[in-house]
């Protein structure tokens, strides 16, 4: 019988599952965290299992992580998203020592050692400035899709200063700028700069090593990534599926335990 294990990451915005068989990823899923969190867990898991035609009973061990980790009814163990992001990223990029995870409502800076274990971490405070939700609100204000933000901002030749990082105030600041005829790309460049500056502060708190990776949904925003790279003078490693790093880490823990 194959050794099949899974990791599930219930985040504030999206939920992810990764299934490993003999150390390799055989299935994954990503859905929006919805209605009932336990139900979300079931749906995400079912979706991934369907890919390989298996059932829950075929899994030997399941580790849950993320904000909703405690409510995953079928998990054997729960581990924090900090440890899981460290583990997942280490698996993909063994040389990476600093990780920035930018999720829906929070950002984390994590330092890891050569074994992929976290040695230090910092998280954002009670304000959602600079998180995925913040960008979503901005996208709505500019009537753009979240995927468009990054590429569009790269077209900007200059950027404007966005003074407020409060999602609500920034939204109206952005609306007002758009009304004044400032190009969307320029506004976005400003927003991304502001976010980069904020997360840079977080990174400084754990110390930045040259081998550095970004995970989470915002890692797919090339605008933020570019601004951050410019600030740090470093090239960021980004996995093809940066959002599933936490679930992957959870699955890797499951592989060790199960």
């Amino acid at each position: 019988m194959d050794h099949i294990i899974a990791g599930i990451d219930i985040g504030s915005a999206t939920s992810k599952v990764v299934i490993l068989r003999e150390g390799g990823i055989v299935a994954s899923s990503l859905i929006r965290t919805g209605a009932d969190s336990a139900d979300t867990a079931h749906r995400a898991m079912a979706m991934a299992l369907k890919e390989i035609g298996l059932g829950l009973a075929d899994l030997h061990y399941i580790v849950a992580t993320g904000y909703g980790r405690i409510i995953v009814p079928f998990a054997h163990e729960i581990i924090t998203e900090i440890a899981c992001h460290a583990k997942g990223t280490h698996f993909v990029f063994p040389h990476v020592r600093t990780i920035l995870d930018m999720g829906g409502q929070d950002c984390k800076a994590i330092r890891i050692d050569e074994r992929g274990l976290h040695t230090s971490f910092a998280m954002n405070d009670k304000c959602a400035a600079g998180t995925g939700r913040f960008l979503e609100a901005m996208a709505r204000a500019l009537d753009l899709s979240i995927q468009e933000l990054g590429p569009l901002s790269l077209q900007a030749s200059e950027s404007v200063a966005v003074s407020s990082m409060c999602a609500v105030f920034a939204k109206s600041e952005v609306t007002a700028m758009a009304r004044r005829g400032i190009p969307q790309s320029t506004i976005l460049a400003g927003l991304h700069e502001a976010i980069a500056e904020r997360v840079h502060g977080l990174l400084k708190r754990v110390g930045i090593e040259p081998e550095f990776a970004i995970s989470g949904g915002i890692a797919k925003n090339v605008g933020v990534v570019r601004k951050l790279e410019e600030r740090l003078g470093l090239k960021a490693h980004i996995a093809p599926e940066p959002q599933i790093m936490g679930a992957l880490g959870a699955a890797l823990f499951a592989a060790e335990r199960g």
């Binding site: 504030s12 209605a35 304000c127 999602a167």
Partner: peptide, 16 residues
Amino acid sequence: SYCTVFAESEVISLIH
């Protein structure tokens, strides 16, 4: 929640 964004998700969870 203080923050509008956090309040939003607090409300969502209440609905759920």
